[in-house]
């Protein structure tokens, strides 16, 4: 005789996203469910397989009955919730946020190795950013080309910390972290020394693959040549933490 079936530990809830009825496990976040159902929610810091960060604020959605917007990457689904992901207000906010990112550092797509394969660029196109209403911040940051295989260009960094998280959570090296405050924040290797001198870096290159822009790239790439492959991440994450 087989024993009694084991009880499910997590409940499944049903809710509505953009007038579409969906079901999901209650420990899933909104953005996970929306990605699963191909409901487009823009994001730059969120990446499947990494912990949620909640920094880019592009995945903000409206939840009926809640006065404040919610970040889809850090909001769990709740039974009966009603979510709108693409209202006029959200589109306007997202456009402004992308504009703010472009104005923060020297993002010049035409001379970028990631031109055509850049998540920031793609998002700008999708959000309808066709001109800049605000002045660019006139600050230039150095490029660190000391590593034999990779390069970091802080002028193209949007501080999404995907590199920090993948290095810590997946590779286990924690070479990357952030220093400074406000717009002067900078991703650093070890104690802000040149990348080549890092004692913890394993040169695995995961940080380069997950970087959404041309900030972290392979050496020897020219304009538009840097194509990134992030497929390894969800596969690795799922093997390590099967649901």
């Amino acid at each position: 005789m087989p024993g009694p079936a084991s009880q499910p530990k997590v409940r499944v809830v049903t809710f509505r996203v953009d007038d579409q009825d969906l079901s999901a496990r209650e420990d899933e976040t909104l953005i996970e469910v929306c990605r699963e159902h191909r409901i487009p929610i823009p994001s730059l810091c969120y990446l499947e397989g990494l912990s949620a960060w909640g920094g880019c604020r592009l995945c903000m959605v409206e939840i009926v009955g809640q006065p404040r917007l919610a970040a889809a990457c850090s909001t769990r689904v709740v039974e009966g919730m009603e979510v709108h992901t693409d209202t006029e207000r959200l589109r306007r906010y997202r456009r402004t946020l992308v504009e703010l990112l472009f104005a923060e550092r020297a993002h010049v797509c035409s001379v970028c190795v990631s031109n055509g394969h850049c998540e920031l660029q793609t998002l700008a196109q999708r959000c309808g950013v066709d001109h800049m209403r605000m002045p660019r911040r006139a600050v230039s940051y150095p490029v660190d080309s000391s590593h034999e295989m990779f390069r970091v260009d802080h002028d193209r960094c949007i501080l999404c910390t995907r590199c920090v998280r993948v290095c810590d959570e997946i590779e286990g090296a924690h070479t990357w972290d952030v220093m400074g405050r406000g717009s002067d924040c900078r991703v650093i290797t070890d104690m802000a020394q040149p990348w080549a001198e890092s004692e913890t870096c394993t040169s695995c290159g995961k940080c380069v693959q997950v970087c959404p822009t041309g900030a972290l790239v392979k050496q020897g790439t020219s304009v538009g040549e840097m194509v990134k492959d992030q497929h390894f991440l969800p596969i690795l994450a799922r093997r390590r933490h099967p649901r």
């Binding site: 920094g55 604020r57 946020l97 605000m134 911040r137 501080l159 405050r181 717009s183 924040c185």
Partner: peptide
């Protein structure tokens, strides 16, 4: 606020700086 922003989220980090410039 601009100088005290931790830099984690985009609107506070860059928005305060643009508002200050304005």
């Amino acid at each position: 606020c601009m100088t005290e922003s931790c830099g984690k989220c985009v609107p506070c980090r860059t928005g305060t700086q643009q508002m200050h410039a304005l």
